[in-house]
């Protein structure tokens, strides 16, 4: 079977789910006639028509709220954030209504929605288009958060997110759309709440997600040569964390570090290490580490941008030191 690009894997997932369930629809800026800024909805407008692939005006908070109301009355909307950063403008609808409304309503309504789009630091896109909103949205109750990292999990997770009856924030990465991979045959889905052990190992557990998985894989190659046996885990689910997989690994390696693209303060790693400390304190032979982005707006300059996010050589150094106990 031919290899599939990540954006096409997402597109196939949406196409298959729209064919399977007439209540599934897409709202967003340029999702229809234009096919999506990253072509994730290419040709779906022609196939499903203007109501099911709805080109919206540039009004993020309102079309996200419209998705909430549509979901409350029977539809299963997928909202595209042309860039996930734009969804800061929809923070209220995502938090108050997608996340909290089922609880506040005492179970009167369910909100089966997917909010998806490209996040992360791209190549010199400037601060506003380089955001890591997973950390900003992490505290909102009632939403699931996943981050995809390969064409295979992108497709399987998208299908699972669409079928889930809860709101799912679905983070893609702007630099991963052209990853290519042979996909499994047939109608497969991936669990929204399960981490993936990318590489088993015995010395150090590295917890990561999204594009940093690939930085970690580069580092792991070098670490292998240096005799550091890494267990690499892609979290996939950022909320809730797959604590079972995480604790099982730490009980084996007794050393853990988080590699993340979000900023350090209030980041995904901050919450993760707090949980690890609560659940695995006695299993740890070294203090847990965080490799995170700098607490700054992402600069435009390419060299400064590289210094803002974690690079593979930093992962190599930290993992080596963590194994040798020199931290």
């Amino acid at each position: 079977m031919a290899e599939t690009l990540l954006f096409n894997a997402l597109r196939d997932a949406i196409d298959e789910e729209m064919a399977r369930d007439p209540m599934v629809c897409v709202f967003g800026e340029d999702v229809g006639q234009y096919g999506g800024s990253y072509k994730v909805t290419k040709d779906l407008y022609e196939k499903y028509g203007q109501w099911r692939v709805l080109d919206t005006p540039i009004a993020e908070n309102s079309f996200t709220g419209m998705a909430v109301g549509a979901a409350m009355t029977g539809l299963r909307p997928i909202v595209e954030g042309m860039n996930m950063g734009f969804l800061l403008l929809a923070f209220n609808q995502i938090s108050n209504n997608m996340g909290m409304l089922r609880y506040t309503s005492g179970g009167n309504y369910t909100i089966p929605t997917v909010v998806r789009g490209p996040g992360g630091v791209g190549r010199q896109l400037g601060a506003e288009h380089s955001q890591r909103l997973e950390a900003y949205f992490h505290a909102v109750p009632g939403i699931k958060i996943v981050a995809v990292s390969t064409p295979t999990n992108a497709k399987g997770l998208m299908k699972a997110a669409i079928r889930d009856n809860n709101p799912v924030l679905f983070f893609e990465h702007v630099l991963l759309y052209n990853l290519s991979e042979e996909l499994p045959e047939g109608d497969y889905i991936c669990a929204l709440d399960q981490a993936e052990v990318v590489r088993p190992g015995k010395d150090v557990t590295i917890l990561t997600y999204s594009r940093m998985r690939h930085h970690c894989l580069k580092a792991v190659q070098q670490l292998e040569a240096e005799g550091v046996d890494v267990e690499l885990i892609d979290l996939i689910s950022l909320k809730p964390f797959d604590l079972e997989t995480i604790t099982r690994s730490i009980r084996k390696t007794h050393r853990v570090m988080v590699v993340e693209e979000c900023m350090k303060t209030g980041g995904i790693g901050a919450e993760l290490i707090a949980l690890i400390t609560e659940h695995c304190f006695d299993d740890l032979d070294a203090r847990p580490l965080r490799l995170s982005s700098q607490d700054i707006p992402t600069p435009y300059n390419g060299a400064l941008e590289n210094l803002t996010i974690i690079q593979p050589h930093q992962i190599v150094k930290a993992a080596t030191q963590l194994k040798s106990g020199s931290f």
Binding site: P22, N61, S62, V68, A71, Y109
Partner: peptide
Amino acid sequence: LGGYAFIGEGIPVALGAAFTSRYKRDAL
């Protein structure tokens, strides 16, 4: 559809219900 306590946030939700009505007629 509910009581919404922040100013204006119920209007998009109401719009969504109206959209569903139109969707069922025109898309389905």
